[in-house]
Design a protein around this nucleic acid. Structure first.
Length: 962
DNA sequence: ACGAAACGGTTTTTT
DNA sequence: ACCGTTTCGT
C-alpha cells in the first residue's frame, strides 16, 4: 500500500494526494491518466480510511472498468478492490435500479432493450404511422433527447413543425412499446437512475467519493448522475482530456468540464503534461494535427522519449494494395528485427469497422493471425443472438420484441403476415404477444383469426420450446441453477445444430457458428459455476442504507443477471494469453475501441476524406480528435496510409487533416529502414533477446525487400512499368547482412524527381508465396487480359485497375466469408484464429526494468522537423530525457537511421539539408528502468502478469479461472 | 395469399 | 453480415 506514490511524477502525485474535494485532472494521451485515477482510489482507501464500498468509480466501457479494477487490486489487494462500486455508468445505474427500482414504480425484472430491439420497435412504428424517417436516425434523435435530459420537460410553447410533431408521436409510441414489453433502453437506465437518486437521496447517502474516468465523454445525464452519486459529501475526482472527446455523437458534452467548475467553485484543476507513451516524432505529428483546431485552448504536451522514427504517410493505389502493403510492412518489420517485434505489437486502427475487409483478407491470405475488436460483437452474432433471444423470452415472455424475433426462427411457417395479425390481436386485447400466442396454441382463442394450419402448428411448437425452458427454470428452486442446461434445452428443442447446418450449408460457416454457440455455453457455465454466483451477487450488492428497502438478487435471478450482463457488456472477450504467453496476433480495431490502449506499431489506413473525416460526420473537429486519438496510440512507429482510390474505385482526396498547412513535414513517405544497429537498440529496449547475425540472415530472407519500395510513393499503379514483373525472378540472393545491392529503377512519373528504388530482393524460399509473388502474378494476368482485350478492341492502359480488381474478386478472397478467408489453403504459416470471437486486445510488450543504460544523454529537445521536399529519412538526436527517477515506464525508442542498408558505414549524405547528419549513423538506444506500475493500460497489464504470474482476463461478470 | 429462398446493394463511432 | 426486393413454390 505504500507503493501508491511510487513511480508517479510531481503532477500525478499532487493529483493523487490532493486534499481538495473536487478535483479535475486533465490528462493528455499517455500521461498516466488511469494510473493517477487508480492511485487516487487506492490513496482514498489506504490513507483516508474510506471504505471501498462507499466509493463509486465510473468508466465508459467495460474494458476500462475491468482494467481499472485490476490495477486497483495491485494496490490494495483483491479483497478491498472487489468491494468498490466500480463499473460503467450503465452498469452502476442498473445496479441501483435493480435494488431500489421498486421505490420509483419500476416493475421488477425489467429487461434491457439493446440497439436492435430499439431499432426494430421504431421500424415497426414508423411503418405503422407511415413516416419516412430512418429508424437509425430516429433512434439517434430519441437517444440524444434522452441524453440531454429533455425528456421530462415538455415545453409546449411555440408551434411545432410538422416534423417535430411527428417525431414526438413516434417518441411516445416508442416509449409505450418499451413499457409494454417491460424494457428499458440504454438511456433509460441513466434517466431512471437519475430520477431514483433525485427522489430517494438516501440510496447514495453512504457514498463518500465519486471518481469518473474519461470525463470528457459524459453527457448531461451522466454529469447529473455524477453529482447525484456524490450529493452527500461532494467529493469528486474526474480525469479527462478534451482533446480526446470522440463521443459527441453520443451527446458527450465537453462543456461539462466548465460546468463542473461552476457548480463546485472550489474545484482544483491539475494538468498532466508529460507523455510516457510515444516517441517525440509521433507526438509532434499528433500535436500538429490537434492544433489545427483553432478554438482549442493551447496545451502543453511534453515528450519524455527521444525523437525516434518519423511517422509514415504512405500513398497506395487501392485499398487492396494498401492492405497488402500493410501486411508487407508487418512482415518487413518483423523480419528485419529478427522477429523481435511480435505480431501482438501491431495494431490496425480504423475509422469504421467496415474498412477491415481488405485488411482481413490480406492478413488471412498471408496466414497472419489477427483479431478484430470493436466491430461485430460476439453477442450480435446471429446464432448467439438467437439463443440469447430465446433465453430472453423464457425469462420474460412479455418481451414482445424477443418473441417476435424468434417465433419464426427456425422457420415455423409464421411469416410477417401472421405476426402482424397476432400483434394486432394482442393490441386489441391489451395483452402481450406471448399471451395471444399461448392462447392460440392452447385452443383458448376467442377471436377466430385466419391462420394457416401450419402456422398454428408452428406456434404450438414455439410455445412448447418456451414452456420447456420455463419448466427447467422453475426447477432451479430445488437444484442448482444452470444457464447452460437451459441453453441445452433450447438448443435441443429447436434442433439448433441441424438448423444452423441447414441454414449455412452454402457458406461453410457452420463450424464457426456452432463454436460460437459452444462459447456462449461456456460463458454460461462460468457464471453458474459454484461460488461464482454468490461472488457475483456479492459484488453487485449495494450497502444497506437506513430506511430504504432493497430488492436482493437470489439464485432464481441467475438468468436475469446473465442477460443483463450480456446487454451491457456487448463483447465477450477471450483471454489474450495462453499459458502465460500472449497469443500472437495482430489487432484490428476501430479507433473508438482503441481508446486508452497502446501498441508499439500502429497503422491507420484509409486516411482519406470521407473516411476521416467521415462523410456522415458533421463535426469535423471531433473527427480530427479521432485521428489524434488514433495516432497517439502508437509508441514507436506510426503508419498512416491512403489509397488514392477507395473501395468503389473512386478517386480519393487525402484527409484534409494531413494536408493542412505543413502537416506533411511530420511524415515520411515510406516505411523506415531498419539497419541492424536500429534493431539492436530496439531489442535492447524491448528487452528481447537480440537476434544473432545468423538469425538476421534467416529472417531477412523471408522478405522480398529490405525497404518499403514495392509500391511507388505517389500511389500510382505499378502496371505502368513493363519491366517490373520479372524483377522478382532476377532478384539477387542477399550476399551478406546489410549489403543488399541497390538496383535503381526509374519510376514512371513520380512527384519527386529523384526517386531511387532499391529492388534488391532476397531469394524466395520454395513454397513460399510472397506478397510480391502474388502481386506479380496478378499483374501478369492483368497484362495478359489487357493484351487480349487490346486484340479485340482498342483500349489500353487505363484498364489495368479494373482488370486487377476483377482478378482479386475472382480469387474469392474479397467476397468470401470470414472463416473461409482466414483459412486459406496455401499457408506458409499457421492459420489465423477465427475472428468470430472478438477478444481483448493484446497487451503489446514488456516494459520492465532494464539494468543497462546507454550513458549520458543529450539534454536538448530536438527541433521540429523542418520541411524538406524529400528528405532522406532523418536521424534524430535523442531528445531530452526527463528526470531519471520518475521512472514512469519509459520503454524505448529507436532512432531512425538513413534508408541506406549498409549500416556499417555512415550512410551517404543524400540530401545536403539532412539535419542532424553528424549523428546519422548513430542509433542511440535510450531506455530507463520502467516502473512496476505504469501509466498505461498496456504496461500495467504486463506488469500485473509479471507480478502475479497470472493475468486474469476479467470482463464484467465473468472472470476466468486461472 | 402466404411463406421461403435467392439475389443484390450497403455498412460511423458505443452503452 | 444485414437489409430489402424479387422470384419461386405451396
Amino acid at each position: 500500500m505504500d507503493n501508491i506514490l511510487q513511480g508517479l511524477n510531481a503532477a500525478q502525485r499532487t493529483a493523487v494526494e490532493s486534499p481538495a474535494s473536487v478535483v479535475q485532472v486533465l490528462a493528455p494521451p499517455g500521461s498516466g491518466k488511469t494510473k493517477t485515477l487508480t492511485a487516487r482510489v487506492a490513496h482514498l482507501i489506504a490513507h483516508r480510511q474510506l471504505q471501498p464500498w462507499n466509493i463509486i468509480v465510473c468508466t465508459f466501457t467495460v474494458k476500462a472498468a475491468s482494467e481499472m479494477k485490476e490495477r486497483i487490486k495491485s494496490f490494495v489487494g483483491e479483497d478491498l478492490a472487489k468491494q468498490l462500486k466500480l463499473g460503467t455508468f450503465h452498469s452502476v445505474a442498473l445496479r441501483y435500479l435493480k435494488h431500489y427500482g421498486q421505490h420509483i414504480g419500476l416493475p421488477k425484472d425489467f429487461g434491457i432493450a439493446d440497439t436492435s430491439d430499439s431499432k426494430a420497435i421504431l421500424k415497426r412504428i414508423i411503418k405503422k404511422l407511415g413516416m419516412s424517417i430512418e429508424p437509425g436516425q430516429a433512434l439517434g434523435r430519441i437517444s440524444s433527447r434522452k441524453a440531454k435530459g429533455e425528456v421530462d420537460s415538455k415545453p409546449g410553447k411555440g408551434p411545432k413543425s410538422v416534423d417535430q410533431q411527428e417525431f414526438l408521436r413516434l417518441f411516445e409510441e416508442y416509449e409505450a412499446t418499451l413499457a409494454a414489453s417491460n424494457l428499458l433502453d440504454y438511456d433509460d437506465l441513466l434517466l431512471r437512475c437519475r430520477f431514483l437518486l433525485k427522489s430517494h437521496p438516501q440510496c447514495v447517502s453512504n457514498v463518500e467519493a465519486v471518481l469518473i474516468d474519461e470525463f470528457q465523454d459524459t453527457n448531461n445525464i451522466q454529469y447529473e448522475l455524477m453529482g447525484l452519486f456524490a450529493q452527500q459529501y461532494n467529493r469528486i475526482t474526474i480525469v479527462g482530456d478534451p482533446d480526446q472527446s470522440i463521443y459527441g455523437f453520443r451527446s458527450a458534452e465537453i462543456k461539462n468540464l466548465s460546468r463542473m467548475k461552476k457548480q463546485w467553485p472550489d474545484t482544483i484543476t491539475i494538468n498532466l503534461e508529460e507523455n510516457y507513451r510515444s516517441s517525440g516524432a509521433i507526438l509532434h505529428a499528433a500535436q500538429n494535427i490537434i492544433e489545427q483546431d483553432e478554438s482549442r485552448p493551447p496545451k502543453r504536451l511534453q515528450a519524455t522519449h527521444t525523437f525516434g522514427l518519423r511517422p509514415v504517410l504512405r500513398k497506395l493505389p487501392t485499398a487492396y494494395a494498401e492492405a497488402e502493403w500493410l501486411v508487407s510492412e508487418i512482415k518487413r518489420m518483423r523480419a528485419l528485427s529478427g522477429n523481435s517485434i511480435q505480431l501482438s505489437d501491431f495494431a490496425v486502427l480504423l475509422r469504421s469497422a467496415a474498412l477491415s475487409r481488405a485488411i482481413e483478407t490480406a492478413l488471412g491470405n498471408t496466414g497472419i493471425p489477427y483479431r478484430m475488436v470493436g466491430g461485430q460483437r460476439f453477442y450480435d452474432r446471429a446464432e448467439v443472438k438467437l439463443v440469447v433471444d430465446y433465453l430472453r423470452v423464457i425469462h420474460q415472455p412479455e418481451n414482445s420484441e424477443a418473441v417476435e424475433r424468434v417465433v419464426n426462427d427456425p422457420s415455423r411457417s409464421v411469416g410477417d403476415t401472421s405476426i402482424r395479425k397476432l400483434r394486432e390481436e394482442a393490441e386489441r386485447k391489451g395483452v402481450s404477444l406471448w399471451s395471444v400466442i399461448l392462447d392460440i396454441s392452447q385452443g383458448r382463442c376467442t377471436t377466430d383469426m385466419k391462420l394457416n394450419e401450419a402456422t398454428r402448428k408452428g406456434l404450438a411448437s414455439f410455445v412448447n420450446v418456451i414452456l420447456s425452458g420455463r419448466k427447467k427454470m422453475e426447477s432451479w428452486s430445488t437444484e442448482p441453477p444452470s444457464v447452460t442446461a437451459l441453453i441445452n434445452v433450447v438448443s435441443q428443442k429447436i434442433g439448433l445444430e441441424a438448423h444452423l447446418r441447414r441454414k449455412h450449408s452454402g457458406d461453410e460457416t457452420f463450424e464457426a457458428r456452432w463454436s460460437n454457440v459452444e462459447e456462449l455455453m461456456a460463458q454460461a457455465t462460468e457464471i453458474t459455476a459454484s461460488g461464482k454466483l454468490n461472488e457475483l451477487v456479492e459484488s453487485q450488492r449495494l450497502p444497506q442504507v437506513e430506511g430504504l428497502d432493497q430488492t436482493t438478487e437470489s439464485a432464481e435471478d441467475v438468468l436475469s443477471v446473465f442477460l443483463a450482463n450480456i446487454a451491457l457488456t456487448a463483447s465477450a472477450e477471450k483471454k489474450a494469453e495462453e499459458d502465460g504467453e500472449k497469443i500472437q496476433q495482430v489487432t484490428i480495431s476501430t479507433i473508438h475501441a482503441a481508446k486508452g490502449l497502446e501498441w508499439p506499431v500502429v497503422f491507420i489506413p484509409a486516411c482519406y476524406d470521407g473516411s476521416i473525416p467521415h462523410s456522415r460526420a458533421d463535426d469535423h473537429d471531433e473527427e480530427r480528435r479521432l485521428l489524434y486519438v488514433g495516432m497517439t496510440r502508437a509508441q514507436a512507429l506510426l503508419y498512416l496510409s491512403c489509397p488514392i482510390k477507395n473501395t468503389q474505385r473512386e478517386e480519393t482526396t487525402i484527409s484534409a487533416f494531413l494536408t493542412h498547412q505543413g502537416a506533411g513535414r511530420y511524415f515520411d513517405e515510406h516505411g523506415p529502414s531498419l539497419p541492424s544497429s536500429a534493431v539492436a537498440s530496439l531489442c535492447t529496449t524491448l528487452r528481447r533477446e537480440c537476434p544473432t547475425e545468423a538469425c538476421f540472415l534467416e529472417t531477412r530472407k523471408t522478405v522480398d525487400s529490405d525497404e518499403d519500395n514495392h509500391w511507388p510513393l505517389n500511389g500510382e499503379e505499378v502496371f505502368a512499368e513493363s519491366n517490373r514483373w520479372d524483377s522478382g525472378a532476377t532478384g539477387n540472393a542477399l550476399p551478406g547482412f546489410g549489403t543488399a545491392r541497390h538496383i535503381p529503377t526509374v519510376q514512371a512519373s513520380t512527384l519527386h524527381q529523384k526517386q531511387v528504388y532499391s529492388t534488391a530482393s532476397a531469394t524466395m524460399q520454395a513454397g513460399f508465396t510472397s506478397v510480391k509473388d502474388r502481386y506479380d502474378n496478378l499483374m501478369e494476368q492483368a497484362q495478359l487480359r489487357k493484351v487480349d482485350k487490346r486484340a479485340e478492341e482498342k483500349k489500353s492502359a487505363e484498364e489495368a485497375p479494373k482488370g486487377r480488381k476483377r482478378l482479386m474478386d475472382g480469387q474469392g478472397t474479397i467476397t468470401g466469408m470470414f472463416a473461409k478467408k482466414q483459412r486459406p489453403s496455401t499457408e506458409p504459416s499457421a492459420p489465423s484464429q477465427p475472428s468470430f470471437k472478438s477478444a481483448r486486445p493484446l497487451q503489446p510488450m514488456s516494459a520492465s526494468a532494464s539494468n543497462t543504460h546507454p550513458g549520458p544523454l543529450p539534454a536538448a529537445r530536438p527541433p521540429l522537423p523542418t520541411h524538406k521536399p524529400r528528405s532522406a529519412p532523418l536521424t534524430r538526436k535523442p531528445s531530452k530525457q526527463t528526470d531519471e527517477n520518475d521512472a514512469t515506464g519509459d520503454r524505448y525508442m529507436f532512432l531512425s537511421s538513413s534508408p541506406q542498408k549498409g549500416d556499417d558505414e555512415p550512410p551517404p549524405a543524400k540530401n545536403d539539408e539532412a539535419e542532424d547528419q553528424e549523428e546519422a549513423n548513430d542509433v542511440v538506444p535510450a531506455f530507463r528502468p520502467a516502473s512496476t506500475l505504469h501509466t498505461t493500460s498496456m504496461s500495467s497489464a504486463t506488469t500485473t502478469r509479471k507480478t502475479l504470474g497470472v493475468r486474469r482476463s476479467l470482463q464484467g461478470w465473468s472472470a476466468r479461472k486461472s
